[in-house]
Design a protein around this nucleic acid. Structure first.
Lengths: 156, 156
DNA sequence: TATTGTTATACTCTATAACTATA
DNA sequence: TATAGTTATAGAGTATAACAATA
């Protein structure tokens, strides 16, 4: 490409400094970008990408609430109960969780983290801690508290 | 169900007050929940769900940067150039955007918002403003500025 | 009748690889 | 050789509808 053409292109086509228009004035834009940044770091650094944030949440909730029913998980994650089935299938195939039919209400399949799952969760938490730290390092302690407080305000 | 059974279930199965375990200590958890809340409100309230946040971003970027190339869009949105094609296809079918081959570099398809697209974007902005306002109402002006500043810190 | 879990199906958003046309 | 756009294909993640088992 000639020098003249390069000059023309500079005029005709927008280059490095892109105009973001109205986007930076929108709260949703910034929340989205922060979420994407954190999501990618999570996938890159936790369990070699084999456990995504969704599966991790399920594992934590099942560990904290032994015997939790799938529809309760669905409600907490704000997804349909049908969508939970695939998540649990995956965790069960990985031997991290077991379904046990409730003797009290036989429609329910209580979820229990296996001993192996508990051990794996402990290992996972080490990756998570490092992942978290990378973002906390960008904030002071009061800033972190303030940020969480304001985010809660958006979804509570 | 008998009264006795209800009592047993209360012991055996976790109910309303779910234990969230370690989740509330994680920054990513709160960012994710805020993002989901904003996303859902966007889909519910903007263009009757026919324009999602992704398409909206593309439209705004094309309007602010007439002739922008698809690979530049891809870089800005941090997605693959192949993924941009489907987005542009959709916007072109909706007559909001046109591809025009660059005369300078014939590999590039410059993107231009159509006059109709510009009008639609203006209408869209009214929905967006109301959507934004619903979340801004939960914060004071200084809190909003602080929140944006801290979110930027996470992805910059 | 209502609830819990499941299957079947489909849609959105994204990625990778291989291709074309241009540079 | 490298770049811009495209196609084909696949994999998450989600939804809806219909169903079986159970309450």
């Amino acid at each position: 490409m000639t020098r003249a053409v390069r000059a023309v292109r500079k005029k005709e086509l927008p280059e490095p400094g892109l105009d973001l228009g109205v986007l930076p004035t929108l709260l949703g834009y910034h929340v989205r970008r922060a979420q994407v940044a954190i999501w990618r770091d999570f996938v890159r650094s936790v369990a070699r990408g084999r456990i995504r944030p969704g599966l991790f949440s399920v594992l934590v909730l099942a560990e904290a609430n032994p015997g939790i029913a799938q529809f309760e998980l669905a409600r907490q994650l704000a997804i349909d109960k049908a969508s939970v089935v695939a998540l649990i299938d995956k965790l069960e195939r990985a031997r991290l969780i077991t379904r046990r039919r409730s003797t009290v209400d036989r429609r329910r399949h209580g979820l229990f983290v296996s001993p192996y799952g508990t051990r794996q969760l402990k290992l996972l938490m080490r990756d998570i801690a490092r992942h978290e730290q990378r973002f906390r390092d960008r904030l002071t302690a009061p800033e972190l508290q303030q940020l969480i407080k304001l985010l809660k305000r958006l979804y509570d």
